[in-house]
Lab assay of single mutants.
Amino acid sequence: TSQSKEFDPLGPLPPGWEKRTDSNGRVYFVNHNTRITQWEDPRSQGQLNE
């Protein structure tokens, strides 16, 4: 049996976020709370300043 979700070392996405793949196979992220899409992983944002 194959799992639909692959193991992700960053852990789960924040509430309201979804990881998607476009027609070219590039991963992007959707924030359903604000209806915004972005290329950057929301889990890695904010760690750059620490």
Rank of each mutant, 00 (worst) to 15 (best):
G16S: 11
S44W: 06
K5C: 03
I36T: 02
K5L: 04
E18K: 07
R26T: 14
W17A: 03
G16E: 09
Y28W: 05
F7Q: 11
E6V: 03
T37K: 01
S44Q: 11
V27N: 08
W17E: 01
T21A: 06
G16L: 04
W17Q: 03
L13M: 12
L10F: 03
N24C: 13
L13R: 00
R35S: 12
Q3P: 06
G16P: 12
S4W: 00
S44G: 12
E50T: 11
Q38D: 00
S23R: 13
S44C: 13
L48M: 12
R26Q: 14
N33V: 02
E40Q: 12
T34E: 09
F29I: 01
E6I: 01
H32M: 12
L13C: 00
P15S: 11
N49I: 03
V30Q: 07
F29G: 01
R26N: 15
L48E: 15
N33Y: 00
D8H: 04
S2H: 09
D22G: 14
N31V: 00
T21H: 06
T1P: 04
T21M: 06
V30M: 13
L10A: 14
Q45L: 10
G11W: 06
D22A: 14
L13Q: 02
N49D: 11
N24T: 05
T1V: 01
I36R: 06
R26Y: 13
S2V: 04
T37L: 04
G25I: 00
L13I: 05
N31A: 00
E40N: 04
V27A: 13
G46D: 15
F7E: 08
P14W: 03
Q45Y: 03
S23C: 08
W39H: 10
T37F: 03
N24G: 13
T37A: 12
Q45S: 14
P12D: 12
L13T: 02
P42R: 00
T37Y: 00
W17P: 00
V30G: 04
Q3L: 10
P15T: 13
Q45V: 15
W39A: 09
Q38F: 00
H32C: 11
Y28I: 00
G25M: 08
R26G: 13
P14R: 02
P14D: 03
G11S: 04
N49C: 06
T34N: 05
G46M: 12
Q45D: 05
V27T: 12
K19L: 05
N49W: 15
E50H: 07
T37Q: 09
F7G: 10
E18Q: 05
V27M: 14
T1S: 08
P15A: 14
E40F: 03
S23W: 05
S4M: 11
W17C: 02
Y28F: 08
V30E: 06
Q38T: 14
P14V: 02
P9D: 02
T21L: 10
F29P: 01
G11A: 09
N24R: 09
Y28P: 01
S2A: 06
S4Q: 05
H32E: 12
V27W: 08
V30Y: 15
T37H: 01
P15N: 15
R20P: 00
L13F: 01
D41P: 04
S4A: 09
D22Y: 02
L10C: 14
L13Y: 05
F7A: 11
E40G: 10
R20F: 09
P42G: 00
S44D: 11
E50W: 08
E6Q: 14
L48T: 08
Q47R: 13
Y28Q: 10
N24W: 07
G46F: 01
G16R: 06
T34K: 14
S44Y: 06
Q3I: 15
Q45K: 13
E6A: 05
G11N: 14
E18N: 03
G11I: 03
E50K: 15
G46N: 14
Q45W: 09
V27Y: 04
G11E: 05
H32W: 07
Q3E: 13
P9N: 11
D22N: 11
R43N: 02
F29V: 01
I36A: 05
F29W: 12
Q3G: 09
E6L: 07
E18A: 08
L48C: 09
R43C: 01
W39R: 13
G46L: 10
K5A: 01
D8N: 09
Q47D: 06
N33I: 15
Q3V: 09
E40P: 02
Q47Y: 09
G25F: 05
P12H: 09
S2Y: 13
P9H: 14
T1E: 14
N33D: 11
I36Y: 09
K19D: 14
D22E: 05
S4N: 14
G16W: 10
F7D: 11
W39F: 15
R43K: 01
S2I: 13
S44T: 13
L10W: 05
S2W: 02
N49H: 08
P12T: 10
Q38K: 02
T1M: 07
H32R: 12
G25Q: 11
N49F: 04
L10D: 13
F7P: 02
R35N: 14
T21C: 06
K5V: 02
T34C: 13
E40A: 08
E40L: 10
D41A: 03
E6D: 03
Q45G: 11
N31L: 00
I36W: 12
E18Y: 08
Q47K: 09
N49K: 15
D41I: 03
T21V: 07
K5N: 12
Q38E: 02
R43E: 01
R20N: 12
N33P: 12
P12W: 00
I36M: 14
T21D: 15
E18M: 03
Q3S: 11
V27C: 14
Y28R: 05
P9R: 12
Q47V: 13
H32T: 08
Q3M: 08
I36N: 06
W39M: 07
S44V: 11
P42W: 00
G16I: 02
Q45F: 04
D8W: 03
P9S: 08
D8M: 04
E18S: 10
H32K: 08
E6H: 02
S2M: 11
L13A: 02
N49T: 15
R43S: 02
F29D: 03
G25N: 15
T34W: 15
I36L: 10
R35L: 06
S44L: 13
L10P: 10
P15Q: 13
K5F: 04
Q45P: 13
F7I: 09
E6Y: 12
G25L: 05
L13G: 00
D8F: 02
R20L: 09
D22F: 03
F29Q: 02
G11H: 04
I36G: 05
S44M: 11
D41H: 07
N33W: 01
G25W: 01
D41N: 04
R35K: 03
R35W: 01
L10Y: 06
P42Q: 05
F7T: 13
L10S: 15
H32V: 09
S4C: 12
T1R: 04
F29M: 04
P14H: 12
L48V: 12
T37D: 04
N24E: 15
E18F: 06
Q47G: 13
Y28E: 08
K5I: 03
G16Q: 11
P12N: 04
E18G: 09
N31D: 07
E40D: 15
